[in-house]
């Protein structure tokens, strides 16, 4: 999923300071799962923003809405009938959701309430870790199911650097050395010979080096 974390309240408050009526719009997908911008977080942030305005002796009108999927024009359309009843929109979705709103409601100021972080998986309740960089040319088939692009601090393709210590990365004892994991896994699979195959310089175009990426599925286009 795409992970996110709420921005500092101070920054959010500064964004909406000039406005009296706010739509606070969450998303039912990834940010709900990582507890950053689902219905519950929308409720909490709305409450915090109301408390803040009360503290200033002001009133603010916050409408809480959580869309099924904020990165989908179909669901974003749901705001159309009411949008003229607000002065600004605060989005708790990832950057994709924020931009879908901004693209649809061109006259409306749209602000992000979360920082979009990474594509990650849940390690355990309340803990998410980066697993994929969306490099567009998946290597997992030859690296034993562990991604060196996302999980090696230097995105090395041909093995660990000299800084590995007890299976941990030189940047922190909290971070696993991806290449140690890959090596252990290749050994477990009896595939350690594969390690010595050179991985040539990567073509970064599918990774974004070729400009913004797009998928067009002709069979699905209406």
């Amino acid at each position: 999923m795409i992970t996110a974390e709420q921005k500092p309240l101070e920054e959010i408050i500064a964004y909406i300071e000039p406005y009296d009526r706010i739509f606070l719009v969450g998303c039912n997908e990834c940010v709900t799962v990582c507890a950053a911008g689902g219905r519950k977080e929308v409720g909490l942030l709305a409450s915090a923003l109301r408390l803040n305005s009360m503290k200033q002796g002001k009133t603010i009108e916050i409408k809480e809405i959580t869309l099924e999927r904020q990165c989908d024009p179909e669901y974003v359309e749901e705001l159309a009938s009411d949008i003229n009843r607000t002065d600004a929109v605060l989005s708790m979705a990832c950057g994709c959701g924020v931009q879908t709103l901004a693209g649809r409601y061109k006259e409306m100021p749209i602000f992000p309430a979360v920082n979009t972080l990474f594509m990650g998986a849940s390690e355990s309740q309340g803990i998410w870790a980066e697993r994929c960089r969306g490099c567009g040319d998946c290597l997992l088939g030859i690296t034993g199911g562990i991604c060196p692009v996302a999980r090696c601090s230097k995105s090395l393709f041909n093995g660990p650097c000299g800084g590995t210590c007890s299976g941990k990365c030189e940047i922190s004892p909290e971070v696993d050395c991806a290449w140690c994991l890959i090596w252990e896994r290749l050994k477990a699979l009896g595939m350690e010979k594969r390690y010595e195959e050179l991985m040539e310089a990567k073509d970064w175009r599918p990774s974004g080096g070729g400009g913004p990426r797009k998928i067009v599925r002709k069979d699905l286009v209406l």
Binding site: N158, G159, P160, G162, T164, G167, Y195, E196
Partner: peptide, 23 residues
């Protein structure tokens, strides 16, 4: 190229050297 015979995993270090030579 550089080689660190002491970094872990130890059993990978010769392979890593071989890879650098191959390159």
């Amino acid at each position: 190229a550089a080689s660190n015979p002491f970094a872990e995993p130890f059993d990978l270090r010769v392979s890593r050297l071989a890879k650098k030579i191959k390159a």
